[in-house]
Simulated scan of single mutants.
Amino acid sequence: MERPAPLVFAELASVLGQAGFEFRGTQEAGEVLARHGDAVHVVAAWNGALSGAPGSDWQVAQLARVSALLGARLVGEDGESYAIRDGMVEQVNGSAVYEFGKLDEILSAGPTVWSR
C-alpha cells in the first residue's frame, strides 16, 4: 500500500476497528485479519507499513478495502493498482482495467484460493 503520509499504528488500529477487521500482534509487527464464517484469515502484515500477498480475489478485495479506508493505494508487485469503484473491485494497469467482480459477491464467496 502506498500513501502520501506515513501510516502510524494508532491510525491503523482505529480504522481497522471501525471497519470490522482484527489485529494480532504488537505496534511494531503483526497481522491484519478478516473473518469469513467462523474462520479468521490473514489479510496483511504490519511492520510499520502494510503489505500483503493475496492468494484469492477475497484477499484482494479485503486489501482494497483496507487501502481505501486508510487513504492509500493498493499496488501490486508489477506496478498495477487495485481499487474499489462503484462497488466493483478493479485492477488497473496503465489504461487497461480488469474487473474482479462485485465487492459484496467476492466478500460473500470467501477466501477461495486461486489455483496455480
Rank of each mutant, 00 (worst) to 15 (best):
M1D: 04
E2I: 07
E2R: 12
R3F: 07
A5K: 13
A5Y: 12
V8A: 11
F9K: 01
F9L: 02
A10E: 15
A10N: 08
L12F: 00
V15P: 02
V15D: 04
Q18A: 15
A19C: 10
A19N: 08
G20M: 06
G20C: 06
F21D: 03
F23S: 00
R24P: 00
G25R: 05
E31T: 10
V32E: 00
L33T: 00
A34H: 06
A34Y: 05
A34N: 06
H36M: 02
A39T: 13
A39Y: 12
V40P: 01
V40C: 11
V43G: 04
W46R: 01
N47G: 13
N47T: 09
G48A: 09
G48L: 07
A49S: 14
A49D: 12
A49H: 13
L50H: 01
L50P: 02
L50D: 04
G52Y: 01
G52L: 07
G52Q: 02
A53V: 13
A53Y: 11
G55S: 11
G55E: 14
D57L: 10
W58T: 03
Q59H: 13
Q59L: 09
A61F: 09
A61T: 07
Q62G: 01
Q62N: 06
L63N: 08
L63Y: 05
L63P: 03
A64P: 06
V66T: 03
V66C: 03
A68C: 03
A68Y: 01
L70A: 05
G71H: 09
A72M: 08
A72N: 05
R73W: 04
R73L: 12
L74P: 02
L74E: 00
L74D: 01
V75K: 07
V75C: 05
G76H: 05
E77I: 09
D78K: 13
D78R: 15
G79L: 07
G79I: 07
S81F: 04
A83H: 10
R85S: 12
D86T: 06
V92A: 11
N93F: 14
N93Y: 14
A96P: 00
V97D: 04
V97L: 04
Y98D: 14
F100Q: 04
G101M: 07
G101K: 04
L103H: 10
E105Y: 04
E105L: 13
I106L: 06
L107E: 08
L107M: 12
S108T: 11
S108Y: 06
A109R: 15
G110Y: 06
T112H: 13
W114S: 02
W114L: 01
R116Y: 12
